[in-house]
């Protein structure tokens, strides 16, 4: 399977992390948090956001709160598939891959649980909220995750999966 890129959005509509792999077989060939990806990030966010609001409107209310709402899991285009994982706190994890696998839910869950929570949320020195003033909300924020532990562990985890 080939992973093209990985994105994290927060509840302020900002992209707080993106990583792209240009040569799929070499995990370190990619770019992390590059400026060129900013527009792509916004488009991706807009795509996910719109489709999500549509599915919310067309699906019926769940019977009880534990049977979860009907949410998007993946969006497929002609050349790639975007897999989505969202948390109740408003973080979206998106993985752009090829068609080899239908569902990357488990992988994204693992990234959230063992890498994101461990190195970002529970790390007291890293900010819990990447927005520092009102201007950076609503998709205009610029801060990214730069935590080396997080980046290294992410690469370590994803590189064996990239064949």
């Amino acid at each position: 399977m080939t992973i093209y890129s990985f994105w994290i959005f927060d509840k302020h509509c900002n992209c707080i992390f993106d990583k792209e792999w240009t040569i799929p077989s070499q995990p370190r060939s990619g770019t992390t948090n590059s400026k060129q990806n900013e527009n792509v990030a916004k488009l991706l966010y807009g795509l996910i956001f719109s489709l999500r609001s549509i599915t919310d409107k067309i699906s019926s209310d769940p019977v009880d709160f534990l049977s979860q709402k009907n949410r998007i899991r993946s969006i497929t285009t002609g050349k790639c598939r975007v897999h989505l994982f969202e948390t109740a706190t408003g973080f979206w994890f998106a993985l752009m891959t090829d068609f080899k696998q239908d569902d990357y839910y488990d992988i994204l869950n693992h990234i959230y649980k063992n890498i994101f929570v461990r190195f970002i949320s529970l790390n007291y020195i890293s900010p819990s909220d990447f927005v520092e003033n009102e201007d950076e909300k609503g998709g205009q924020g610029i801060r990214k995750i730069n935590n080396k532990n997080f980046i290294n562990n992410l690469e370590l985890f994803l590189s064996p999966l990239i064949s």
Partner: peptide, 22 residues
């Protein structure tokens, strides 16, 4: 408060609960 904003992520990661309806 500082503990709370972080521990919620840990909690959601462990229990995988969605947002409550009421």
């Amino acid at each position: 408060y500082n503990i709370g904003v972080r521990i919620i992520e840990d909690f959601l990661a462990r229990t995988a609960l969605p947002r409550c309806t009421d």
